[in-house]
Design a protein around this nucleic acid. Structure first.
Length: 459
RNA sequence: GUGGCUUUAGCUCAGUUGGUUAGAGCAGCGGUUUGUGGUUCCGCAGGUCGUGGGUUCGACCCCCAUAAGCCACCCCA
């Protein structure tokens, strides 16, 4: 025997293993969301984890490019690098020669590629959902990983505001089904646009959006000094304060906002949204402070937060559980124009944490098989196996504990896997064809059951 | 990219001002006990104390370097 080198078992930074019970809980969330999506006519798609680097680069800004996971070319990855490039030893400019592929950074850019590439074969408006892992070479921290799941639903190729209505309804329905009390905040990018026009600082729009976005976490004083440092004067920051803090709840209706063409357009959109929804979604609330960091949004935007006024959510502090919005020209960079889209996203990892904290997972999801057959002796295993198989043929989940072990092992196994019943199988049972069924929880015992009776009882 | 903290058994962690042979609980394995139920008790196995230097008669402990992980910024989900 050659010596086996021991390797310390460890994960790559920012990644996780999931225990069976965790996978069951995650699937519960996925299945709940999927069933709502399907009910509204969304179809599931898949795309590869690996995309060509040219598909990925330049879509997420300079920061985003740095956070892309690159895949080293197979084989002799240095053979295509020009000599002068090698000599220069510039890792940035050498990159394109040694890494042609990368891991997807989100599900949105792959969607844009997908839609353009398959447009002849898709039914428009194209309503799809996509759940899958994405990868970012970010520094991990609490609730942030290098590999995590995104869960998106988008409608491509329709400008109707009824799409926004539909997505609002989906948000409401999903969180209701999961049992989480949330507020569905919404705003309109053109309200923000108009606000920036009102204070006449067009060059600062990105900064202002990012400051508004931070309002929930950072004190106004700090934001104000950041804006002053950037060159805004006191009267301008005061005007901003008046709008996004004082009038945040009614910003879309304010006269100075509506005086602007963009503001008026936003007013019209929001009016339609509210009129159609009426009182059917009471937790859909306007929030003039909502901006969302991503700069491709052009219309209605959403963000989901825990409802602090709900008694259930006692003192849980948690960022947004989802977000989305309308974007124009998503597909333009892949050569298809005039494809407006609107989409929403669910923050699975945070939803999981909230549900864990509030104990919202139903107890049934961690349940194992219905019944465990325990052979009393090793010679009984085959007979027990046949009985278990008979149960399975009638749709009852059953297992046989194989291996000659101590009794306490059996019960540990039953407990660990949350098995509901057990049947011990020995020579007597084999000879008589009668079994004794015991309920693990209640300890109720039913004796002298034929296999047929056993099946009937468990069905 | 910036800063802080941590690193001792598979996991969670003790470890005295620097002193011989590094400990516990959980998990694993074996036995024991329980008048057919997760129990009790006992034992076994498992560690180059992240790594590399240094100080010292002597280092898990002090110093330097380095790596990894976590946490907080930036940014984002």
């Amino acid at each position: 025997m050659s010596e086996i080198k021991k390797i310390k078992p460890a994960l790559s930074k920012g990644t996780r293993d999931f225990l069976p019970v965790e996978v069951a809980k995650r699937n519960y969330i996925f299945d709940t969301i999927k069933s709502v999506f399907r009910k509204y006519g969304f179809e599931e798609i898949e795309t590869p984890a690996i995309e060509r680097m040219e598909t990925l680069t330049g879509k997420y800004g300079e920061e985003g490019d740095k956070l892309l996971f690159k895949i080293l070319n197979s084989g002799d990855f240095l053979k295509d690098v020009p000599k002068e490039e090698l000599a220069a030893a510039n890792s940035q400019s050498t990159l394109k020669y040694i890494a042609e592929k990368g891991l997807r950074y989100d599900l949105t850019v792959p969607l844009a590629r997908y839609v353009v590439q398959h447009q002849e074969n898709l039914a428009f408006p194209f309503k799809r959902f996509h759940i899958g892992p994405v990868w970012r070479a970010d520094r991990p921290q609490k609730g942030r990983y290098q590999e995590f799941y995104q869960c998106d639903a988008d409608i491509i190729g329709s400008t109707s505001l009824l799409n926004e209505v539909e997505l609002s309804m989906i948000y409401a329905e999903v969180f209701k089904a999961l049992g989480i009390d949330v507020l569905i905040h919404f705003n309109h990018r053109k309200v923000i646009e108009s606000l920036i026009a009102v204070i006449d600082k067009p060059g600062f729009s990105e900064l202002i959006v990012s400051c508004i976005d931070k309002l929930d976490k950072v004190e106004w004083d700090k934001i104000e000094s950041e804006l002053h440092a950037a060159g805004l004067i006191k009267s301008e920051t005061d005007a901003l304060y008046n709008s996004i803090i004082v009038k945040a709840d009614t910003l879309w209706c304010e006269e100075d906002i509506r005086a602007n063409a963009a503001g008026e357009e936003a007013h019209k959109d929001i009016s339609v949204l509210l009129k159609v929804i009426g009182s059917s979604i009471p937790n859909l609330v306007y929030n003039g402070r909502l901006a969302r960091g991503l700069n491709y949004y052009t219309g209605i935007i959403w963000e989901i937060v825990l409802d602090k006024s709900s008694v259930a959510n006692n003192n849980i502090s948690m960022g947004s559980l989802g977000g989305g919005g309308r974007y124009d020209n998503l597909t333009e960079m892949f050569g298809a124009k005039n494809m407006s889209g609107v989409g929403i996203s669910f923050g699975i990892e945070r939803i999981y944490d909230v549900m864990e904290e509030l104990n919202l997972f139903p107890a049934t999801i961690s349940q194992g098989v219905k019944v465990l057959f325990i052979p009393r002796e090793e010679e009984m295993e085959e007979f027990a196996f046949q009985q278990a198989h008979a149960l399975r043929c009638d749709g009852i989940a059953a297992e046989v504990y194989l291996g000659n072990v101590k009794k306490q092992k059996h019960f540990k196994y039953i407990g660990d896997k949350h098995i509901a019943y057990f049947v011990e199988v020995g020579g007597d049972e084999k000879a008589s064809g009668k079994f004794r069924l015991r309920n693990v929880q209640t300890r109720d015992t039913q004796s002298d059951l034929t296999l047929k009776q056993l099946i009937q009882l468990l069905q």
